[in-house]
Each structure stands twice: as structure tokens, then as C-alpha cells.
Amino acid sequence: MDKSIMGRVIDWTNYVLLGLIAAVCTLPFIYILSASLTAPEELLKRGFILIPHSFSLEGYRYVLSTNTIVNSLGVTALVTVVGTLVNLLFTALMAYPLAQRDLFGSRLIMKMVVFSMLFGGGMIPTYLIVRWTGLLDHVGALIIPGLISAFNLIIMRNFFQNLPDGLEEAARIDGCSDPGILFRIVIPLSAPVLASLALFYAVGHWNSYFSAVLYINDSSLWPIQVWLRQIVILSQGGIGDSTSFETGYVAPPAETIKMAVIVLSVLPILVVYPFLQKHFAKGALLGSVKG
């Protein structure tokens, strides 16, 4: 049926509003990318740039002149990959038994999980626990304290509860154990919710910097976000090695270095996101609605 004139007006109004919101959201990314590709002289002269007149990779060249950024990217990638896999494993190991309706004390445990979402021990007790367990200056301090997210646990538990009971019953008749049911039947059927939670965990690990500031004193173990914080907040541009260039080389201004490091820190997660995006909405919806 043809839409009325008022319906078309409402549709076009929504299109315009959504387009404006999308433009406002993408404008900072366009500016950062353009500024990182702009010649330092033009950036200092014009300030705000969306379309550079003269392109330059001097900021990236200077930032990548040492292994500092490359090493920090490696640390971040290691924490993101290992941390995400460990997070998914332990979340599934806790969510599966809590999804069993006949588990004694499951309601009490779930109330404790929800309680942890509202109240926490605080920064100082957490730091003391990390120190007593010997995790200071260790990449494990970036993974283990946040091993299981209560929010993600609830989503995965609800997803497991929505699976047909006949699958587990058939597996038990065939002699399959509880771990076998989890890893052979439940996990393969949970790809959408696992992909969604993997995205949550991965983005959280990639963007995390506060844990490293608290627990990591060795700068060689700093993730990329800590170096980005050092550059952006403290305005320290001396991250590269001017001695590796020709004599008389002048390092680019701090603003160019900031933009280049921001792009390098955001680009990897933007590359991975499209591969998980198709599972994102479906997994979150299936795991958040019980029925």
C-alpha cells in the first residue's frame, strides 16, 4: 500500500535526523584521520582539518621509528586475544551449571552475581589482592581481575536456558557427561552469543588502560592505550627516535603524533569488528530475553 504524505514526511524526517546523528558521530574520526595524514605545517596553521591539502605520513613514520608502539600493540593484542578466550571459557563454565534449573543454590549464586554488579570491593582492596597474588608487573593483572563479567554471564546463562532440553536429555542417554554436553553440544550451538560476548570482551581489553596504570610499572608491558594516554594527556611527543633519521631531522609536533597514535590504536579493532558484527545483534537479543 502506498504511504500517505504524512508517512513519507515522517520517514524523510527520520532519515535526515539519523543522517545528522551519524555525521556528528563520524566527524571526530574523520578529523583524527585527516589530521594524522596532514603535513605538520598545515596542521599547525589550519587547526581543524577535514580534507587535507597536503598529505604526509611523517607522524606515522616518527611513531614507528622505534619498537615502542609496535611492542605496545603486541602486548595489547596478546591481552585481547588470550583474555577474550579465557573470559569466554570461564564465563561458559559458570553459566552452564547456573542454567540448570535443578542446581541447588543457583538462585542464591545469581543474586550474588547481580549484587556484584551494584557493589564492588573498591580500587584499593583490588590492588592489594593483585599484589598479594604476585600479579604486579605481569600481563595476568590485565586479565585475571576481570575474568568473568556479571553482565555477560547473565546473557550467556539466559541463552543456555533457551536451548531445547531434549538435546541434553538425548546426549545423557547416549552416555555423554556434563563437560561433553557443554563442549560438544551447547558451545557449538552458541556461536551467536559467543561472538557477541567475544566482541564485548575484546573491545573492553583493547580499550582498557586503567588496570595497566595501576598494576604495570614496567613500560615495556604497557598496552597501546597507556602510551596513548601518556601522549594525549601529558603532551609528550618524544615517543620516536630522531637519531634514526637523517641529520637535522626535526620531529613532528605533538598534535601530529597524537593523531597518528590514535589511528594506530583504533584501526585493529575496527578491522575485526565487521567480522563479528553480523552475530552481534542476534546474540545479544537471544541471550537477553528469556522465553
Rank of each mutant, 00 (worst) to 15 (best):
S116G: 10
A198G: 14
A150R: 04
N158D: 14
R157D: 10
L194T: 08
R101I: 14
S177M: 02
I148G: 05
K111A: 11
G180H: 00
L199A: 15
L199F: 13
I144H: 00
F115T: 06
G146F: 01
P97N: 10
E168N: 09
K111H: 15
T133L: 14
Y127P: 05
F115P: 10
N162T: 08
T126L: 10
I148P: 04
I181W: 07
A141L: 04
H138S: 13
I154A: 14
F160A: 13
L194D: 10
M156A: 11
E168Q: 12
Q100E: 14
L103V: 11
M117C: 07
A171N: 11
L136I: 14
I187Y: 07
D178E: 15
F151N: 09
M117G: 10
F159P: 05
I185N: 06
S149E: 11
L182P: 05
G105K: 03
L136Y: 06
V130W: 03
G146Y: 01
I129K: 07
S116L: 03
I173A: 13
A198S: 15
N152S: 13
M112C: 10
A171L: 05
L167T: 05
P125D: 04
L167F: 07
A150P: 04
I187E: 07
L194V: 09
P125C: 08
P97Q: 13
F159V: 09
G175A: 09
N162V: 00
S190A: 14
N158L: 08
L118R: 00
G134Y: 00
Y127Q: 05
G122K: 00
T133A: 12
G166C: 12
A99M: 00
I148A: 06
